[in-house]
Design a protein around this nucleic acid. Structure first.
Lengths: 215, 215
DNA sequence: TTTGCCTAATCAATCGTTTGATTAATTTTG
DNA sequence: CAAAATTAATCAAACGATTGATTAGGCAAA
């Protein structure tokens, strides 16, 4: 049946996503992926052409999901600029906790100097997210609700960088936070709301002009 | 001559550091490293025992350098807490620009779920830096010059995370900043002072209690 | 001659990929 | 509908290439 075929490809992608995240592109062998997925090795090439094709397929599957989320956040004109950014942060923190293995996968491979076809593709995907955030901050700058001398590119680096630091280095941030961040309960009940609160207060202190008289 | 032997080993380590940073541990082959270093392949095993031994040797060489720099920053009692943090940031930004390929190497390998002997070693090294920053922020919290409800672990995540984001993803941050950050001139004349200014203003807005009457 | 440095050649193991054969499913034809 | 033809899916086996590592031997200095 057609449904089974789709589910099998999806299953392979699920496994590949995790194995790539754990071992890196080079460290993850096609034998390991096919083995853990319970399919014949040749199926990877049959479905995805090559190892790189499989890797890119893992990405392609995520793009639409990312894009639609961000569009919904950015195009809501019923709220203030700062309100948009708040919602953006809340949604982001909510997402990264669930999808952290995919995030690790991204950040590891994009830091390579070589393999340009891959990194270019990844960069392209990430820029969608960046552009959406950038639009919101620029809006706040133009309508006067944000300070006029803020450094937008570096604010973006802080938003994504803080997030990456926590999820990409679980051993290290666990030591800093005093808890194992791979503990689901701690993640959900403590870290999630904590990161939300922190990011919003940090950015508000830097961005929002309280003396704004434009509204 | 003994001097030549040491220089040759150092030369191999220099090359290995760069190649590991560019290709990752798995992606970097011993043939590539020995080839670019201009030595016979067997020399790597002769000097360092194995590929992993070579990898660890690259790290060992850096530890002392890191440690001494941080001690000089943290133990100066002639300045205020905020002044210490300012100096810390300035020194950090100055360093990361020079050593960015080593930083990339660190951040890629520590995000792996496997290879525990390596990640544990790296985590240990990074904690030295973290602890030094943490000490300063706690000092500011105790003497009342910083707000009392700040989230120290997440501030640390922001400091290192923002830095990592810029240097680990040169293609992406180049797009965001509008310039190629691998351009030495732009790096030195624009990005360096810019990141310093930004980080200090960002942290000051979040941390420093202007109504502090303790002094 | 012995010791330490170095090279070329080679090792077994693993890599990603391809092959030819076989089965399952679908479509076409009578 | 049933038989035949075609396509899709799956498999074990093997491919050439490359991996990290080792070997045997040369060569210069002590």
């Amino acid at each position: 049946m057609d449904k089974d075929k789709i589910d099998k490809k999806d299953h392979i992608l699920d496994v590949a996503e995790r194995v790539f995240a754990d071992y890196g592109f080079d460290g993850a062998s096609t034998r390991t992926i096919s083995g853990e997925a319970g399919v014949n090795m040749a199926m990877l090439n049959y479905y995805f052409g090559s190892k790189e094709g499989l890797f890119l397929a893992v990405f392609e599957r995520k793009i639409s999901s990312f894009r639609t989320l961000l569009q919904n956040i950015g195009n809501d004109d019923t709220m203030t600029t700062w309100g948009k950014l708040e919602k953006c942060i809340d949604n982001y923190v909510e997402r990264i906790i669930v999808n952290n293995c995919f995030q690790k996968l991204i950040n590891r491979e994009v830091s390579m100097n070589k393999r340009w076809t891959l990194t270019d593709k990844i960069t392209e995907i990430l820029m969608v997210n960046v552009h959406e955030i950038k639009k919101i901050i620029e809006e706040g700058l133009n309508n006067g609700s944000f300070y006029s001398d803020i450094d937008i590119p570096l604010v973006i680096a802080t938003i994504f960088g803080t997030k990456n630091y926590i999820i990409n280095m679980p051993q290290l941030s666990s030591l800093i936070l005093g808890h194992d961040i791979r503990d689901e309960k701690f993640m959900e009940e403590n870290l999630k709301p904590r990161v939300k609160t922190y990011m919003k207060r940090l950015l508000k202190a830097y961005l929002v002009n309280e003396n704004d008289n434009s509204k």
